[in-house]
């Protein structure tokens, strides 16, 4: 699949934003005071909204994006749009109440945390529902999205609390969170090795219905140039460098944040360092998400010569 920058930015950034919103809502310790009550939710909202706005950049008609709120009964994309807006509105009210009273309303926060997690789940389901892309069509896809989102949110929330608290104990849980999230991604990668169009029963023979006669090979494409389908769904560059890019993703997204979090925990350092861990994790996730798209094979490639297309 074509790895569109706007969609990579959307899934990573709004994932992190909703992760932080979930952590704030769930009542993670954060600095007190009006500045904290404004800037921390503003950062969370900014990440979530920047991601959502970026997702409209790949639309052919962004001015009609509001129409996407209408089909929540059948479409995951529509559901995600609706729930993200509801969650953000509730989060705005929560923030307003926090700024005015200095108190965080726990029941509303928990509701927002559930809304955030469900929004991320729905984002992932846009991809996981695709039978045409066997790599994505697994329950591990939403699990990875959710774990990365919550890990991003936890690192950032624990990091920002470093302004108020000297306790380094949250770094221990950060280590666990990073390890669990990447363990899930490792399982996803392992599964992707055994899932393919062929394993799902789709071959050039089933695509053409000519399998009962013999082995099928593409002799000629319908046209000499490229088309929308080959641009959008037949992307082979990612597969070529997949191994190297995985190492880069693991080094930035897993090894470095783990080292930082372990360091904070071992040396009882300030959890402010976890903000740095968050930034390198995000960098790693951009590479991971690029691979998520670039490595994925779409069934239509079978009409364009299969793996060699």
């Amino acid at each position: 699949m074509h790895p569109a920058i706007s969609v990579i930015f959307f899934t990573v950034t709004s994932g992190a934003g909703f992760g932080l919103i979930a952590m704030i809502g769930a009542g993670m310790p954060l600095p007190n005071g009006l500045a904290a009550a404004f800037f921390i939710p503003a950062l969370a909202g900014l990440l979530a909204v920047a991601g959502l706005i970026s997702s409209t950049f790949h639309l052919g008609h962004p001015e009609r994006a509001w129409r996407a709120f209408s089909q929540w009964r059948s479409s995951w994309l529509s559901r995600e749009g609706v729930l993200s807006v509801i969650t953000l509105i509730l989060f705005g009210l929560y923030t307003l109440a926090w700024m005015i009273s200095g108190e965080r309303i726990l029941w509303l926060g928990l509701l927002i945390a559930i809304g955030s997690a469900l929004t991320v789940y729905m984002t992932a389901m846009i991809y996981a529902q695709m039978k045409t892309v066997p790599h994505w069509h697994t329950g591990l896809t939403p699990l990875c999205y959710l774990l990365f989102s919550l890990t991003c949110g936890y690192l950032l929330a624990a990091g920002l609390n470093g302004f108020a608290s000297g306790a380094s104990s949250p770094a221990g849980l950060a280590v666990v969170a990073i390890a669990i999230a990447w363990a899930c991604k490792y399982a996803w990668w392992k599964q992707a090795e055994t899932t393919s169009l062929e394993a799902a029963g789709s071959t050039m023979e089933s695509a053409t219905g000519l399998g009962s006669i013999g082995k099928v090979r593409l002799l000629e494409r319908p046209h000499t140039g490229e088309n929308y389908l080959t641009h959008e769904m037949i992307h082979v560059v990612g597969r070529k460098h997949a191994a190297k890019l995985r190492i880069i993703a693991l080094a930035l997204g897993a090894a470095l944040p783990l080292l930082i979090a372990l360091g904070v925990w071992a040396f009882a350092a300030s959890t402010l360092w976890l903000v740095l861990a968050f930034i390198v994790l995000m960098a790693g996730l951009f590479v991971e998400r690029w691979l998520f798209f670039a490595e994925a094979e779409h069934a239509v490639s079978l009409y364009y010569g299969g793996r060699e297309a």
């Binding site: 790949h58 052919g60 008609h61 994309l77 929308y228 959008e232 779409h298 239509v300």
Partner: peptide, 19 residues
């Protein structure tokens, strides 16, 4: 009513839809 998101083209295994 189409916003040009391209999701339907992803969902089609046959490549029947083009933007």
């Amino acid at each position: 009513m189409c916003i040009g998101c391209g999701l339907c083209a992803w969902a089609c295994p046959y490549g029947a839809r083009e933007m």
